[in-house]
Simulated assay, not measured.
Amino acid sequence: MMSFYLDYYPGYRDKETMKVIRHESLGIYIYANPRNKREQNFNEVMTEKAEAIRCRRFESVVNERYDFFDKYKLKADFLEYYRKQLRKHDQKWEFVYLHFSNFVHGKCTFEEIDIDLCNKFREYLLSAKKLRRNGRITRNSASGYWSTFRGFLKILYRNGMIKTNVNDFLEKIETEDVMKEALSVEELYKLAETPCKKPILKTASLFSCMTSLRISDILSLCWEDIVDYSAGGKCVHIITQKNKAEDIIPISEEALGLIGYNSEKKGFVFKGLMRSWTQIPMKEWIRSAGITKNITFHSYRRTFATLQAAAGTDIRTIQSIMAHKSITTTQRYIKVVDANKREASKKITLTRQD
């Protein structure tokens, strides 16, 4: 048997793998020495198919080189392409992909990606059910998912995968203000004094309150990430899991004592900690401490910001520690303490002050 190959000269770069392609096997085989009419007919049919593929490949290369839109891209599997991009991004991308896959019932080509379809997906998100739990996703979650999807559309247009910059014609989903819980100083004391069935969960939670680390960074934190700080003492020096941004967080001696820091230790700081423990085990621990607020692990990060602000720490310093690109983000985290509100209310008076 003989097989068909395509030779490219001088070769072209595959934008998906970034490799220079010079040879391509078509996976088509013919008889080297056909012995009868049937084998001759088989060779003719396979040769025609190989020629059709050669013409299609040539057209694609020309379209790529001279900026014509390749019509064969339109027929490609959009969901398959989307799925391959997930490994480059955070978990939110996976959630958006799963919601979109549910929306289109598992089938979608690039040709179908237009303004109408995208707007229908927007409507879907506003009433979509949660993927892993009961109930519907919040409007703010829908807004975040929609923003991520629109960002993906921008990438597709920039990479020549779709003809129209669909994103320019799509309206964003406005977020809504919601009550976001944080622990008070007294509640933090209670939590520190209350035993937890998962001791490492308690340690990680309190450490997050003292450093503002997200659960993703807590899970990936290694002893080697705790290094000398330029201003003295120790700090956590990491690349955050969410934003892939450098973050340097000074650590107090109390926080170091909490985790049992030792410069000789290696590996994960919170070895054995499971993300799933932040659900039922953590909520049981919080209730046993007499705290009735709806506290999530992310609430510890908000607790850090709130208590730092209440203690008089400058908002720019808080922004730097929390690695926020915008101070507006930091402001959303900070809950003004009631006592501060009370003091503020006394500053405007109709009575002359001597």
Rank of each mutant, 00 (worst) to 15 (best):
326 S>N: 14
182 A>S: 14
39 E>N: 08
182 A>N: 13
120 K>Q: 13
38 R>E: 15
347 K>H: 11
45 V>I: 15
240 T>I: 03
345 S>G: 04
15 K>M: 08
245 A>M: 11
221 L>Y: 01
221 L>Q: 02
55 C>P: 06
114 D>E: 14
62 V>E: 11
27 G>P: 11
8 Y>L: 06
247 D>M: 12
166 V>L: 13
307 L>V: 03
147 S>P: 10
191 L>Y: 03
123 E>F: 11
110 F>A: 08
262 N>M: 03
188 L>P: 05
132 R>V: 13
24 E>L: 10
349 T>E: 11
285 W>P: 05
213 L>C: 07
10 P>L: 04
152 F>P: 09
33 N>S: 11
310 A>S: 10
109 T>L: 08
279 Q>L: 14
138 T>P: 11
48 E>F: 11
248 I>D: 04
186 E>K: 14
243 N>E: 06
289 A>K: 07
83 R>Q: 13
107 K>R: 15
211 T>Q: 04
235 C>V: 07
100 F>R: 06
349 T>L: 09
323 A>C: 14
107 K>W: 08
215 I>R: 00
104 V>R: 10
250 P>Q: 05
328 T>F: 12
340 N>L: 15
84 K>C: 06
167 N>H: 14
89 H>S: 08
65 R>Y: 11
53 I>W: 09
14 D>A: 02
54 R>E: 10
153 L>G: 03
183 L>T: 06
5 Y>V: 04
289 A>W: 07
82 Y>R: 00
49 K>F: 10
149 F>L: 06
225 D>R: 00
292 T>P: 09
204 A>V: 02
221 L>V: 02
347 K>P: 09
272 G>N: 04
288 S>C: 08
161 M>I: 12
314 D>E: 12
79 L>Y: 08
302 R>C: 00
2 M>A: 07
163 K>E: 15
114 D>G: 10
336 V>G: 04
91 Q>H: 14
163 K>S: 12
247 D>Y: 03
150 R>K: 15
182 A>D: 09
96 V>H: 06
82 Y>W: 11
150 R>A: 02
160 G>H: 05
99 H>K: 12
218 I>K: 01
2 M>G: 01
47 T>G: 10
116 D>E: 15
284 E>R: 14
202 K>E: 00
97 Y>T: 02
296 T>F: 09
298 H>V: 05
254 E>S: 05
112 E>F: 02
213 L>Y: 05
88 K>N: 13
272 G>K: 04
341 K>T: 07
108 C>N: 06
222 C>K: 14
1 M>W: 13
167 N>F: 12
68 F>T: 05
353 Q>S: 10
327 I>F: 07
124 Y>K: 04
286 I>E: 01
99 H>N: 09
15 K>C: 03
227 V>I: 15
148 T>W: 04
70 D>Y: 05
65 R>E: 15
302 R>T: 00
41 N>K: 13
179 M>S: 13
354 D>S: 09
298 H>Y: 05
201 L>D: 01
187 E>V: 06
150 R>E: 07
250 P>D: 05
278 T>Q: 00
306 T>P: 07
8 Y>H: 10
241 Q>C: 01
143 S>Q: 10
33 N>K: 15
